[in-house]
Amino acid sequence: MKILVAVKRVIDYNVKIRVKADHSDVDLTNVKMAMNPFCEIAVEEAVRLKEKGVATEVVAVTVGPKAAQEQLRTALALGADRAIHIETDERVESLAVAKLLAKVVEDEQPGMVILGKQAIDTDNNQTGQMLAALTGLPQGTFASEVAADGDKVNVTREIDGGLQTIALTLPAIVTTDLRLNEPRYAKLPDIMKAKKKPLDVKSPADYGVEVASRVSLVKVESPAERKGGVKVASVDELIDKLKNEAKVL
């Protein structure tokens, strides 16, 4: 089966962002960008399914500016076979991404689509679920284990109370959680080879999808800063402060 993987270009997870002085948005100038960590896990899972002989082809897709091709090349270096770039400079919300991905699903007819559970910039945690609803395919979100077997897949999910395993008919939509796998690093020869793998460039208009959203960003502020407090010298002092100063004991 073919596997479609959705990858998003986001700020590197180590970077602490700043809000612009005019509060219009966060400031991303000269900030290090990378593949969303949950998408790295998605690519890794797809590549492993190919290595196991479950998958025959892995197609990576992204929606974003020209520079997002860097993340597609990374996916190709990690083992994806080809890539689709839906190019736009707009701020594209999860719903529009899901609509675009639904069109790609229609074209490509994958047996499984793997997405991250959450993009670490918007922290939305929506796109996979929306894609499942729009395509009418079942969903296994927050996956820590994916076991495909014939025309079914068992997905173990990280839920608030522990773990839940569900069985889905294929094709299905899966979103990754942190414990699904540990992504590999791309090797230099693979990075070189990735430059020659096919990468198709499309536009949202090619798919007939309107990306503008009815949600507007009014302003962006910094959260209330927490001030570091004091260092205490001993357990006794800590207990004293908690009892008599903070009054939480």
């Binding site: 602490k16 962002i17 809000v19 966060v26 009014v218 302003k219 959260p223």
Partner: peptide, 12 residues
């Protein structure tokens, strides 16, 4: 909150 709570957005 967005960006791991390092910014708070107001959305309409």
């Amino acid at each position: 909150p967005i960006y791991a709570g390092n910014a708070i957005s107001t959305v309409k």
